[in-house]
């Protein structure tokens, strides 16, 4: 029985925020897997019609239910507000419901935030060559990175990565107004305005058939682009 090594045991001072919109197929597994490391999970059910909320509750997550569909950005903000209001957690981890993020990456990012005393850890799939997004997706993602960097003055390698660790003081600076997908740029912008220290952390995105089907269709990047420019 040694002292708990930093990379073992559940992480008690971080809450996972998982926005849900009709994710019931894989959600139970994703939450169960995540809760081995992160016992505290809040799911924001964005008015799903397939019982995702009930699945989340059964898997042991706290649940916030939107009365009607507001979009993923709105759901993220709701989850962050929940963590700030209802808990005294030090870290908020934004996590996807479709199983494309790995729990060990999230845990490593929280550890890194703690060890290096940074307020924000952005997951990036482009820091190493493990993630294989496909050519067209890569081009669009890189375009998104470029625009985000232009708008925020940060130098990120991956902009639309849903895996982030945000310390309480940084999370308090978030007031996302983009309800739909353009929140990914907005979140970076608002975090950059807090002037708090940040790092990028290499993560592996697991593109399964399910996550591909649920994920952003490439044509939707047009919407994201326009929402990003016209506020």
């Amino acid at each position: 029985m040694s002292l708990t090594p930093p990379d073992a045991g559940p992480i008690e001072d971080a809450w996972l925020v998982i926005p849900l919109y009709n994710e019931s197929t894989v959600l139970g597994e994703v939450i169960a897997e995540a809760r081995k490391t992160f016992p505290h999970v809040v799911c924001v059910d964005d008015a799903s019609t397939d019982g995702s909320g009930a699945v989340a509750r059964r898997a042991g997550a706290a649940l916030v239910t939107h009365p009607f569909n507001l979009g993923q950005g709105a759901a993220l903000q709701t989850g962050i507000d929940y963590v700030l209001e209802a808990t005294d957690a030090e870290y908020v981890v934004t996590f996807d419901a479709d199983g494309q993020h790995r729990v060990e990456d999230a845990a490593a990012m929280v550890r890194r935030a703690r060890e290096e005393d940074v307020a924000i850890v952005f997951g990036s799939r482009f820091l190493d060559g493990r993630t294989k997004p496909g050519l067209l997706r890569r081009i669009i993602l890189k375009g998104a990175v470029w625009i985000t960097n232009q708008q925020t003055g940060l130098r990120l390698s991956d902009a639309h990565n849903g895996l982030r660790v945000i310390r309480r003081d940084a999370a308090e600076g978030l007031h996302l107004a983009q309800n739909r997908m353009a929140h990914a740029t907005e979140i970076v912008l608002q975090l950059s305005r807090t002037k708090l220290p940040w790092v990028e952390h290499p993560v592996l995105i697991v593109y399964t058939d399910y996550s591909r089907a649920k994920g952003q269709s490439l044509i939707n990047s047009v919407n994201i682009l326009i929402d990003t420019i016209i506020k």
Binding site: V42, V64, H66, Q77, T78
Partner: peptide, 19 residues
């Protein structure tokens, strides 16, 4: 925007109360 804030507050009140 107003709609979102209203809906969020509603959802949060309920969830925080529950917690």
């Amino acid at each position: 925007q107003q709609n979102t804030i209203l809906a969020r507050q509603l959802a949060l009140n309920h969830a925080v109360h529950e917690a």
